[in-house]
Every structure is written in structure tokens, then in C-alpha cells.
């Protein structure tokens, strides 16, 4: 048995070696070296950036843009722990500022490339018959928010504070008594409302564009929060030139047109 195992061990190394050495002879020659650009982007950008990435790749042959979509706070932590990213697009200046402080991003590099605002979403059937913002304080309904750490969750809490000041009557306490879960990114909130497992959620206006069957209640300007999205290249990026090009593209008329299509508010 021992002998057999050692034989198998060497045989496998031998075969692997053969396999590796034979690749150049049999595999077709790759026509052009491809560059891979890694973009870490806020969850809310999932649909929009997927399309921006495809357009960017089409305009730049040989470039493949890959994305890591998650809550901005998750992405920030991943970058701090050494994840290899070329570009960071955050849903909140707070996360970007933390990276500037930690010397992951140059001080003047971040640019605000779009803004977003909040909206209340309801399942298509609207089981709790919610008609206006005040109804969110009705006891017994189920609301999901993004967690406090997530930009969308932080903005939602700020908006609730403003609603509380406007509606009074213990609005905030009643609202939070209805919150059944703090989700880890904004798309999870959308998913749970879409499944109809909860009665309402607070997400970005842009999230509704991707899921048109959802009902929504607008939050008036004076109670809403404007979320500013900064984008910046990372100092440790191995593709600095390409990273700059991608950021330029998102700010170009073509890039901004795609973002506008997905419900984001443009800066210019």
C-alpha cells in the first residue's frame, strides 16, 4: 500500500509536469494579452455598473472589467484587509474618507459621480395596504432596512429622523418597532420585499428601476436624503491607467447616460 501510494504520488506529479509542458504545443496561441480591471462597487450599482462595464469592455478591446458588488462598508473592509481592487465606487463618502485616512486612496482622488435618493418600496400586492409614509408606523407591519453600517441603512435612519421631526407622535419608535431585520446590503432589502415576506423596505430610487413590479412611495425632498457616490482609483492598483480610464468613462456622456437609465441622479 505504501509503495502504491508513493508511486501514485510521483505518477501524479509526473503527469502534471507532462501536462504543463504540453500546453504551449497544443493550445491555440492567445491573440492579445487581456487586462483585467477589478472594480469594487456598492450593491446599489449592481445593475448599472454591469452595463457600464460591458460598454467599457466593448470600447476597449482586450479589457475585461470584473466587479465585486457588496455593501460599501464590506468593500471598504475588504480593501483595508488587502483585497486587490483597482477602483472603488462607494455609496457613501464616509467609507471613501476612511480609505483616504488609511492611505488606500489619494486625498484628492475621489470624485462624486452620481447621487441617489431614498424611496419606500412595497410588494406588488401591498398586503399591509400602505398608502403614505405615516402608515409605516402602523403597529404590526413588517419593515426591513439595510443595517446601520450599510450606507443605505445609514441614510434611511437619517430620513426616519427627519420624518419623526415632521410627523411626531412617536413616529420613530413605532417605525423601529416594526423593523424585523437589518440586512447586509441594499439588494437584500429589495429581495425580501420582492418576495413579499415583508410589507415595506427603504431603498434607493435606482433600485426600483431594476424591479419594476415593486410599488413605491416617494419620500418628499425635504424629508429625503441625497446620497453622494464617490469613485476613486486605489493607490495599490496594478492597472492605474485603466482605472483612470474607467472612472473617466463613468463620468463621460455615454457612462452617465447608462447610469441615468438605471435611475441615478447625475451630478452635472
Amino acid at each position: 500500500m505504501k509503495r502504491f501510494l508513493s508511486l501514485a504520488f510521483f505518477l501524479s506529479i509526473f503527469l502534471t509536469a507532462c501536462g504543463v509542458s504540453s500546453i504551449p504545443a497544443t493550445a491555440p496561441v492567445i491573440e492579445k494579452a487581456t487586462a483585467i480591471l477589478t472594480v469594487f462597487a456598492a450593491s446599489s450599482l449592481t445593475d448599472a455598473f454591469t452595463e457600464v462595464g460591458a460598454a467599457f469592455d466593448a470600447a476597449n478591446p482586450g479589457v475585461t472589467t470584473t466587479f465585486n458588488f457588496a455593501g460599501s462598508q464590506s468593500l471598504r473592509t475588504q480593501i483595508e484587509e488587502g483585497a486587490p481592487a483597482d477602483v472603488f465606487a462607494s455609496a457613501s463618502s464616509k467609507e471613501m474618507d476612511t480609505l483616504v485616512t488609511g492611505s488606500f486612496v489619494t486625498k484628492d482622488a475621489p470624485q462624486i459621480f452620481l447621487t441617489n435618493k431614498l424611496v419606500v418600496i412595497l410588494p406588488a400586492e401591498n398586503p399591509a395596504m400602505i398608502e403614505k409614509l405615516e402608515d409605516l408606523a402602523t403597529p404590526g407591519i413588517k419593515i426591513v432596512l439595510a443595517a446601520e453600517e450599510v450606507p443605505a441603512g445609514k441614510y434611511a435612519r437619517q430620513a426616519i429622523d427627519q420624518m419623526d421631526a415632521s410627523f411626531r407622535a412617536g413616529y420613530k419608535d413605532k417605525f423601529f418597532a416594526n423593523v424585523v431585520s437589518n440586512e447586509n446590503n441594499v439588494k437584500q432589502v429589495v429581495g425580501k420585499v420582492q418576495l413579499g415576506e415583508v410589507d415595506a423596505g427603504i431603498v434607493y430610487v435606482s433600485d426600483v428601476v431594476a424591479v419594476p413590479e415593486l410599488k413605491s412611495i416617494e419620500i418628499p425632498e425635504d424629508l429625503n436624503i441625497i446620497a453622494e457616490y464617490p469613485i476613486a482609483p486605489l493607490i495599490k492598483s496594478q492597472n492605474a491607467e485603466l482605472a483612470a480610464k474607467f472612472i473617466q468613462f463613468t463620468l463621460s456622456p455615454e457612462g452617465q447616460a447608462i447610469l441615468a437609465k438605471w435611475g441615478f441622479i447625475l451630478v452635472k
Binding site: 453600517e149 424585523v180 437589518n182 447586509n184
Partner: peptide
Amino acid sequence: TILFAGNLEGITQTMPMAIYLGFERNI
């Protein structure tokens, strides 16, 4: 748990959930 039960302190936030969120708030 995170998909079926969600995340709410004291109700559904178990240790692994608190670790996951803690990672982002305070490592």
C-alpha cells in the same frame, strides 16, 4: 439564518451574524 431569519439584535442576530456585521463595524 441570514436569508430566512434576517438579522435583528436579540431576536435573530446569532454569533456568526454578529461576527459578520462586526467585521464591518469594528473588526
